[in-house]
Design a binder for these strands. Structure first.
Lengths: 199, 199
DNA sequence: ACTCCTAAAACGAATGCTCGTTCTCTTATT
DNA sequence: AATAAGAGAACGAGCATTCGTTTTAGGAGT
């Protein structure tokens, strides 16, 4: 009853992270459904039993990774939206793209986001989670747009939500081109956006 | 030698299409790696042997579907780029989005494109194919931009390729929002783009 | 300080099932 | 008659997961 042999909470958290990061590497290499539990287990350097103690099924592991991949941009976006004085839209876009750039490499979490998009199409729970996250991202852009409207950068009578959608679209739109075609680089793209916006 | 018992070429093509369409339905439901060959075979109403006569492996089937999904927009885009008189950029975007809308539903091929993006990250051959296709799409936008520059719609000194990238980005950027969050609808989005462009 | 004890943590062989593919046989076509 | 087209049983590999066992951590009793 009393003897409670347990390992420290830090140790538990560290083990969990060890597994998640091994899984992330595997999923980056092979995708969700082509990596086997044995792959993850070997990558983590643990045993079957150890991994299954922390994640009762492969689906749980996928969920953990998916949340990490899709939620990662949250703080970045929130920070930009809340900053004083208000950030001009193009500069805000540039800062988001800078974040995307750091996470678009071979090790970056955003490559996993692409897989999450696919997975969300057949996993309703994941779809709900992703929908909430992305609507939240768009909402942060909406805040930025409203502030830009007060500053006269955008016509006051425009539909802020719609403008936010357009601005937001420029992020995954570039990300996909970068991942799939390798171009354009961020500065070139931003110059293109500026020219398109006529500013 | 001479007796060449063969079925008509039309019959062969029809069978092939029958299999491809069954596969498309399965892949839409379950994704590439969670649909089994048995699923496709049952959906097509054929036998194992029949399907394997037309597609020697599952990978071949995935490739066929991927090419269909990613290549589908080609003619639409080419048509708009080549039209006389030149189509204003916003109108061109609207027409592309109209096509996307038709293919974004539960049965539309574009939902498969998302899976192809994921697959391209670990299949070099598919990655090359997709890169070529998407660079081609962007090139069509570039043609449009150059013509818009001649018409004064876009500054003549802008980098047409970069502007094209920005314009192109607005397509998958909207598509993803639509698929993942269910919003905004096309007209709202286009109004947002117009307001953002300050036109 | 040093055992002993208990339960958590970790292990890994074994399991049962599913998958992609092969292969032999039957049917259809010219 | 000869061969392509189609059928479907069978196979071996690989999968996620289970479960009985071993190791480890750390408080209790001395």
């Amino acid at each position: 009853m009393y003897p409670v042999p347990r390992v420290s909470a830090e140790h538990l958290a560290a083990r969990r992270r060890q597994i998640v990061e091994a899984a992330r590497r595997c999923f980056l290499r092979e995708g969700f459904h082509r990596t086997t539990m044995q792959d993850v287990i070997a990558e983590a350097g643990l045993s079957v039993g150890a991994v299954y103690r922390y994640f009762p099924s492969k689906a749980d592991l996928i969920n953990a990774i998916a949340e990490e991949a899709v939620g990662g941009a949250e703080e970045v976006l929130a920070g930009i939206a809340r900053q004083e004085p208000p950030v001009p839209l193009i500069e805000a876009l540039g800062r988001v793209l800078a974040y995307v750039e750091t996470q678009a490499g071979d090790e970056g979490v955003l490559r996993i986001a692409i897989q999450v998009w696919g997975e969300a199409q057949r996993d309703p729970a994941l779809a709900t989670f992703v929908a909430g996250k992305y609507a939240g991202f768009r909402h942060h852009f909406e805040v930025l747009v409203r502030r830009a409207q007060r500053g006269g950068e955008i016509p006051a009578d425009a539909d802020a939500e719609a403008v936010a959608a357009a601005l937001f679209a420029l992020v995954p739109g570039w990300f996909l081109q970068l991942i799939l075609t390798g171009a354009p680089d961020r500065d070139t793209y931003l110059a293109g956006v500026r020219a398109l916006l006529g500013r």
